[in-house]
């Protein structure tokens, strides 16, 4: 019996079901190796076995994203594979997106390593290369042979839990993940080398190409502030005493939602701050400096605005990854939409 089990995902075309007319094909599982799976299985040798192949039409997947994902996850789970392989999708756009989506879901929900392959201009590559190891292929199935060695090596390494090296070594698309290494020269020397080239107008390579930042356009002004529902969100690390949700003092991975119902001000007996980026002394004495409940209650009483939401959302905004911050923002925003919040006071520190 083979040491390692693999489940393979294919679309209707590579699965031998049919062309565009069969793109609505619902997910099916076949306990055999099919299409490119034959070459993969042959290349992997006896220690590996493709125990099942899942086939799904590209249109069906695209139009039934959640159902299709759930169904396929259940199919994959049953075989308890060591590695999940999707495609390669080459330059097929819908197929690429399906491969990326299902790989990401299998990794997150089943917790096994996943790999796919795509042409770098496949829209699925842009969407998923950050999350899923995507072997670099050409733009057609004719390039499978060339991509195969990289794919096989990665499958073997993943099965054995070995370290995956950099994109140029292993032949996958750069994910944009920043990984440390010890360079030959110190940073100051590398910087000076770069400067000398830059001043001489010679080509040089930066260590960090500048990322493109998301810019969020400011919302329109609130028209009727007297009836507006206002909430407070802070990155100042104010939490109930004891920090019940264990929010980190730096690089927070979570945020908290805490009640201020029935309170006229933030009492230091009830609240503290766990922020690691400033001298907390003053805020620990008076948490209203960061969550200005005292003033907001007065204004609420005086009718300056409609109503204060009876909770506040909080996290630590020092060293916090932008990926985490975007996730918090999405989730807090959804809650506010549900709770019909009109405006937010965002207190930074």
């Amino acid at each position: 019996m083979a040491k390692y089990k693999i489940v393979h995902y294919l679309n209707q075309f590579f699965g031998g079901i049919g062309g565009e007319e069969k793109a609505g094909f619902e997910p099916e599982v076949r306990e055999e190796k099919i299409g490119p799976g034959l070459a993969i299985a042959q290349g992997l040798g006896e220690d590996y076995e493709i125990v099942a192949t899942v086939i799904c039409g590209d249109n069906y997947f695209g139009e039934n994203l959640d159902t299709a994902t759930d169904t396929i996850i259940e199919m994959v789970k049953r075989y308890e594979p060591d590695v999940f392989v999707a495609g390669p999708a080459f330059n097929a756009g819908r197929y690429g997106v399906a491969c990326g989506t299902i790989c990401k879901a299998v990794e997150e929900r089943i917790g096994i390593p996943v790999v796919t392959g795509m042409y770098e201009e496949n829209p699925g590559a842009d969407m998923f290369k950050k999350d899923v190891i995507t072997v670099r292929t050409g733009n057609s199935a004719a390039t499978l042979k060339k991509a195969l060695p990289s794919l096989l090596t990665l499958i073997k390494k993943m099965a054995a839990g070995e370290e995956i090296l950099g994109p140029s070594v292993e032949g996958y698309l750069e994910r944009g993940i920043r990984v440390n290494y010890f360079a030959e020269k110190r940073g100051a020397t590398r910087g000076m080398d770069m400067l000398i080239k830059k001043m001489a107008r010679e080509p040089f390579e930066t260590d960090l190409p500048m990322p493109k930042f998301d810019r969020v356009a400011p919302a329109e002004a609130i028209k009727d502030i007297k009836n507006a529902k206002i909430a407070v969100v802070t990155s100042g690390g104010v939490v109930p005493q004891g920090n019940p949700d264990h929010i980190e003092s730096s690089n927070a991975t979570k945020y908290g939602v805490y009640s201020i119902e029935g309170m006229d001000s933030m009492s230091p007996d009830d609240f503290t701050t766990i922020h690691g980026g400033y001298d907390r002394q003053f805020v620990m004495k008076n948490p209203n400096l960061v969550v200005p409940l005292d003033v907001l209650r007065e204004m609420e009483k005086e009718g300056e605005f409609g109503e204060l939401v009876n909770y506040f959302c909080t996290t630590t905004g020092t060293g916090t990854a932008t990926g985490s911050a975007a996730k918090f923002g999405d989730s807090i925003g959804k809650k506010f939409v549900e709770d019909h919040v009109d405006g937010v006071i965002l207190v930074s520190t």
Binding site: V179, F182, G187
Partner: peptide
């Protein structure tokens, strides 16, 4: 962040 060490990061 003043380049004292050889540690560096690159894209994977």
């Amino acid at each position: 962040a003043n380049g004292f060490n050889t540690l560096a990061a690159r894209g994977y």
